[in-house]
Write a protein that binds this DNA or RNA. Structure first.
Lengths: 221, 221
DNA sequence: CTCCTTTTGTGAGCACTGCTCTCTAATTGA
DNA sequence: TCAATTAGAGAGCAGTGCTCACAAAAGGAG
């Protein structure tokens, strides 16, 4: 039952997006009265939470699969970033759920969402933390408050890195999400969607270089 | 009437977000039968389009205001980026409409959306095009197809710039949107929201330096 | 096996939604 | 002044999320 709800919910998500989620439609699909759904799910909001957690987990599994421990840092970084992009293109509605604008009037409960939601980010940041602080970031510094925040945030992930590197790494993370979202949501027009793979490849190359990740030799096109 | 619809629509947006938009509620607010709304707006979808266009215009006005022609390139760049952030924080739902995940089952009609939707981006890219091609980008090149796309895309904006610079500039644009979205939607947790201003300032500094914008001397914190 | 409790599902019903249709009132312009 | 256009009213349809009283299973203890 519960799996059926999730399955049909994800199907609706894929077909028509989050706002088309319909409890009654799920019930019909399961051949059951609509009220029966509410025995397993408190309300539509909680159903959304389940689907979000599911999306996060699925994304994490997809992005962190094929992570070859023998690969260079640069290769592992590229693997995560391209894995995210591929998954996002294959699951646009679920990507929107995870990294798009939040569903209004609803804030995902942190206790259920945090762990799966940060798994990819953690791997991403751990990798960047193994590199060097980018020159631009190193030259500027940061306020004591932000540095403290970064150190404690990194500590949660078991990272012991330069806070200035942290600032740049956070920027890289949000930048990657912005880049993928721009392609998935076609925010730059359909023309650029055709070059999404290359745009990401360039972004990866440049980021690898900025952070001095091992194994990131320039690869001219 | 039309202004009333837009006004109440924006109010609903601010209060409860896009999914809470209700034609009937707007009608009630105007003291009018719900069917009367449909004399001025074909359906809810078109209402959304109006609100999106309105949001784009408002954002553009806010971000491009106070643009001092005498200011350095770096200062103007910072002015646009911070203007976007301030507006986004003040209008999170409208920011979500403009740059968040698209409302499912709905794609904004390009003919009404394109012009206001690209005004800020145009100004942003024009500024970056006045700078230099970042080193990382210059060293790697791009495929002929993407280069052609970038040249023609830039030409639409009246820009005659190195395609390699274009790739980096597009990355900067999507990166900025990702960074602002992360703060507005609290995707990095509430802790970082408190440092949004500084994170953006660091991002601006670094981007200004990467693109070698005039007037962008390092400002250590 | 029986009896009781908990779980799971039913179906009617409430208040809401977007939207359409027919009808009426107001506003135009020749 | 009078027809034509426009703006609004209000009933109604099909859909929604969700609740509630009720009935059918499913377990577990004796």
């Amino acid at each position: 039952m519960r799996e059926g709800i999730l399955r049909l919910g994800n199907a609706q998500l894929a077909e028509a997006g989050a706002s088309a989620l319909s409890v009654r439609e799920i019930a019909r699909g399961l051949g059951v009265a609509s009220s029966a759904i509410y025995r397993h799910v408190a309300n539509k909001e909680q159903l959304l939470t389940l689907l979000i957690v599911d999306a996060y987990s699925d994304l994490a599994a997809a992005a962190l699969a094929h992570l070859d421990a023998d690969a260079t840092q640069a290769e592992r970084f590229a693997s995560i970033a391209t894995g995210m992009r591929i998954w996002a293109l294959a699951n646009p509605s679920r990507w929107a759920l995870a990294y798009g604008s939040p569903v209004p009037g609803y804030s995902a409960p942190a206790d259920q969402t945090n762990e799966p939601g940060t798994r990819v980010m953690r791997a991403f940041l751990v990798l960047l933390a193994a590199g060097e602080t980018p020159q631009g970031a190193a030259r500027r510094g940061a306020s004591a408050g932000l540095q403290a925040e970064l150190v404690s945030g990194a500590a949660e992930f078991g990272i012991d890195a330069d806070p200035l590197l942290g600032i740049a790494a956070v920027g890289a993370w949000t930048g990657l999400i912005g880049l993928i979202s721009a392609e998935v949501f076609q925010q730059l027009g359909p023309e650029f969607a055709a070059h999404g793979e290359e745009l990401l490849a360039r972004w990866i190359d440049e980021t690898v270089e900025r952070f001095g990740l091992a194994g990131g030799d320039p690869r001219p096109y």
